[in-house]
Amino acid sequence: MNRFLTIMASRWMRLVLVLLIVLSLQTTLFTELRPFGVAAQVVLLMVVVAGSIFGVAIGALTGLIAGLMYDLILSTPVGLGSVALGLAGATAGLLIYFFNEPTWWMRSIAIAVVSSLGEIYYPLVQATVGLDGWLQLRLVKVVLVVAVCNLLLSPLAIVVCRWTLSERKTTL
């Protein structure tokens, strides 16, 4: 029983619950608001922010979990988003590897850059399983819009991500 309660109170359970809300925002609000015809990717933003704050391992794990949840509502094969977002989270985590204590602007730039890379990973992973046709010139526009949107939304995402993934001492 104690073990069950520990799991329920863990940051990973918190992450799943927060991701459900982020995912619902992605499929409703951010699917409707399409600046220049491109949907902002808040699930990707959460993953990238997690990686940039907590490092490679947490970033990759967050990406794999978020991607798996995202895949279950998409029509593309389950697992593709998981791999793509896992890679994006791990890439964002490299920031801490190179800069021990990054400043806010370094983190912001990293979020924008890794968001762009994360958006490229998805069609690349799709192409590896034969779902090609998405690597075209439009990708440049998609990448730029996603990077700018994620840069603007990153302050809020950092607060949410810190609250979600920070370790707390539980007294059970």
Partner: peptide, 19 residues
């Protein structure tokens, strides 16, 4: 964590194959 990542990556690959 490393084990969890490996497990999740393998799960993703298996899921892709199954789907």
């Amino acid at each position: 964590r490393r084990r969890a990542i490996i497990l999740l990556v393998l799960t993703a690959i298996i899921l892709i194959t199954l789907d």
